[in-house]
Amino acid sequence: MTVKAILGYEVAEGLTPEEYERWLFEVHAPDLLANPHLDRIVFNKVLRPVRQASGGTAEIPEGYSFYRIAEMHFADEDAYAQYREWFSDHPIPAERGPAGRTDFKFYVLTDSTEVTRESLAAGGAAR
C-alpha cells in the first residue's frame, strides 16, 4: 500500500517564484526529508490549467489554478502518523516553515492505486 499526502498550493503573495523555489529546494525539502517516515516527495509544477476532462465529460470552471501539486509518499497510514508524531518532537522552526510562503488550497491523505498498460494486460491494477 502506498499512502500519499497530496497538496495543491499557490506561492504566497509577496514572494517571487524564484524566491519560493530557492526556499523550497534549499530549505523546506531538506527539512521534510529529515523525517525518516517520509519516503519521498514529488513536486508537480503546474504548466497550465485544463478546462475540460477527456471526451468533454466535465467542464472545469475558471478560477482553479495551482502553482504546484505536491505528493509526499509514505509506506502506509501508520508511517504517515509517525511522520506527524516525529514533527511534534522535531518541529520545523517557524522561520524555515511554509507559513507566509505557501498558500495551501488543499491537503488530503490518499490511498494510491497505479494502473498501467501492463497491469491491465495482467488482469488488474497494481497496488
Rank of each mutant, 00 (worst) to 15 (best):
E62G: 05
Y80L: 15
P61K: 09
K4R: 14
Q52F: 10
I92V: 04
L7K: 00
Q52R: 15
P49N: 04
I6N: 11
R84F: 05
P61S: 08
R48A: 04
A126E: 15
R127Q: 09
R22D: 02
T2W: 10
E10R: 09
W23P: 02
D78W: 07
A125E: 07
A121T: 08
I60G: 06
F43N: 10
G14H: 02
E114C: 04
N35I: 05
N44L: 11
W86G: 05
L7Y: 03
H73C: 07
G123P: 11
R117E: 15
S112I: 07
A121N: 11
V3M: 07
E13F: 00
P98G: 11
V42W: 12
R127N: 10
A58F: 15
M1G: 04
V42F: 11
Q82C: 11
A5M: 15
L32C: 12
D89T: 14
T110G: 09
F66L: 04
E118P: 05
E21S: 09
E21C: 03
Y9H: 13
K4D: 09
K4G: 09
Y107D: 15
T16S: 10
F43E: 09
G123D: 13
D39P: 00
G97H: 11
L33I: 03
R22F: 06
T102Q: 01
T16L: 02
W86C: 12
Y80Q: 13
F74A: 03
P98M: 09
T16F: 01
V3D: 01
Y107C: 09
Y20S: 05
V115G: 05
I41E: 03
T116S: 15
V115W: 06
P91T: 11
F74V: 02
A122S: 15
G97E: 07
D111N: 14
I6S: 08
Y20K: 02
L7S: 00
M1W: 04
T57P: 06
E10H: 12
F87H: 15
L33G: 00
V108P: 01
L24W: 07
K45M: 06
D78S: 12
E77L: 14
H28N: 01
E59G: 07
G97Q: 11
A29I: 14
Q82T: 08
T110S: 14
E26T: 10
K4E: 13
Y9I: 01
Y20G: 00
D39M: 10
S54H: 11
D89F: 10
P17H: 12
G100E: 08
